[in-house]
Amino acid sequence: MSLAKWIQQAWHHQSAWLIVLRPLSYVYRAAFLYQKKQYQSGKKPIYQAPIPVMVIGNITIGGSGKTPLLIQLVKHLTAQNIRVGVISRGYGGQGPFPRLVVNGQTSALDVGDEPACIVAATGVPMAVGPNRQQDIELLLQSYSLDLIISDDGLQHWALARQIEWIVVDEKRGFGNQRLLPEGFLREPISRLQNSTVIHHYTKAMDKPTPYHMYLEVGQPYLLNPTDASPTFNPTQRFHGVVGIGYPERFFASLAEIGVIDVVQHTFPDHHAYTETDIRFTDALPLITTEKDAIKLQRLLTASDHQFVPIWVLPVEAVLSEPCYTLLHQQLNDCHLSGH
């Protein structure tokens, strides 16, 4: 078991031994607050983009549902004739940076799996790279835009933002409510007080807060269809292959559609798959996420061997109506509306 997976399991189970990491958490907190103060005091410059910026992020390590939310917002804003562009760190991508993400032309190996997935789902103009200012400037050189959405970047203090949404996974919660590495918090919970919080519930959970979302599980589709493609059978056995921040959500989503006989194969978030990762001694079909499928597709096109069926489980963020009402209020405050 990798160190990353081991400590993630400890966070999930709130293991008592994590207390030995508390001194490191104090160091992390001090460094974090010092860095933040450097920007707030003006000692380090903050970039103000020429158009409004919206940041969508979280205060935890691991998946919170941020990417499906972003995809849904891009679709909604585009339908409202608001010209939106997206920037991202491009975590896991090899670069060079900054660079544009072009659907069908840019590899997830170069720009990261999440940017490739976002552009594949929406066709949105997107730039990736660790310097957000350079990303925005590259986008604006290439496109006429009304709004920039930053995929993550909540703790990127060098970027000014007019709108800030923080996604909180209500099922996962905040664990032991400790900062890294004793817990999985990037920032204290008090950080939520000054931003819009979107509460991510499961579909079956009660949703007492007005600003909430859940993930609607769609019909699985084949990544590698053939003329003799099988139909999806949820009662059969699968190899579940997943490399996301919170893999438990994927297996819970499978259970929603009746897939419960799953041999679980979990990999680190943003894992760079090799062919051996998806080759097993039996002929059971595979099932995976759309984010993972972006990278597995490359293996299919590069391989001369025949793979077993690989099913992809799509999910779509469903937002409460108050989320959209609030969004348009915030956009109006930025003097931004559709064309």
Results as ranks from 00 to 15, higher is better:
4 A>D: 05
4 A>M: 09
8 Q>T: 05
11 W>R: 06
12 H>P: 03
12 H>K: 10
12 H>D: 06
13 H>T: 07
14 Q>M: 11
21 L>R: 04
25 S>C: 12
29 R>F: 10
36 K>N: 08
36 K>V: 03
37 K>S: 12
38 Q>D: 05
40 Q>R: 14
41 S>I: 03
42 G>I: 11
43 K>F: 13
44 K>I: 05
46 I>P: 00
49 A>W: 00
56 I>R: 03
56 I>Q: 01
57 G>D: 07
59 I>N: 01
59 I>P: 01
62 G>V: 10
68 P>R: 05
69 L>A: 06
76 H>E: 08
77 L>P: 02
80 Q>N: 09
85 G>Y: 03
87 I>F: 05
89 R>G: 00
91 Y>N: 04
93 G>A: 12
96 P>Y: 15
98 P>Q: 14
98 P>M: 15
101 V>C: 08
101 V>N: 04
104 G>D: 09
105 Q>R: 12
106 T>E: 05
108 A>D: 02
109 L>K: 11
111 V>R: 03
113 D>L: 13
113 D>C: 11
116 A>M: 09
118 I>C: 10
120 A>I: 04
120 A>H: 14
125 P>V: 10
135 D>P: 02
138 L>Y: 11
141 Q>P: 02
142 S>D: 05
147 L>Y: 07
149 I>G: 03
151 D>Q: 08
152 D>E: 09
154 L>P: 00
156 H>G: 07
156 H>Q: 09
158 A>Q: 15
162 Q>D: 14
162 Q>Y: 06
163 I>N: 00
164 E>G: 06
165 W>D: 02
171 K>S: 07
175 G>N: 00
176 N>S: 11
178 R>S: 04
182 E>V: 10
183 G>M: 12
183 G>S: 11
194 N>D: 13
198 I>P: 01
202 T>L: 15
205 M>L: 11
207 K>C: 08
208 P>K: 15
209 T>G: 02
214 Y>V: 02
214 Y>W: 15
216 E>I: 05
217 V>Q: 10
218 G>K: 14
225 P>H: 15
225 P>D: 12
226 T>I: 09
228 A>D: 11
229 S>G: 09
238 F>C: 06
238 F>E: 02
240 G>A: 07
241 V>C: 07
241 V>G: 00
242 V>Y: 06
252 A>K: 08
253 S>E: 06
254 L>I: 02
256 E>V: 02
265 H>S: 11
266 T>Q: 14
271 H>N: 06
273 Y>T: 02
275 E>Q: 14
276 T>R: 15
279 R>W: 12
280 F>H: 11
281 T>D: 14
285 P>L: 15
286 L>E: 01
286 L>H: 09
288 T>N: 07
288 T>Q: 06
289 T>I: 06
290 E>W: 00
291 K>M: 09
292 D>S: 09
293 A>Q: 01
294 I>P: 01
295 K>A: 10
295 K>V: 01
296 L>M: 13
298 R>V: 08
299 L>A: 10
302 A>V: 00
304 D>F: 12
305 H>M: 09
306 Q>K: 14
306 Q>G: 04
313 L>K: 02
313 L>H: 00
315 V>C: 09
316 E>Y: 05
317 A>R: 06
319 L>I: 10
321 E>R: 14
325 T>Q: 15
326 L>E: 05
327 L>F: 06
327 L>Y: 04
330 Q>M: 12
331 L>R: 04
331 L>D: 00
334 C>K: 09
336 L>F: 13
337 S>E: 11
338 G>I: 12
338 G>K: 14
338 G>M: 13
338 G>C: 12
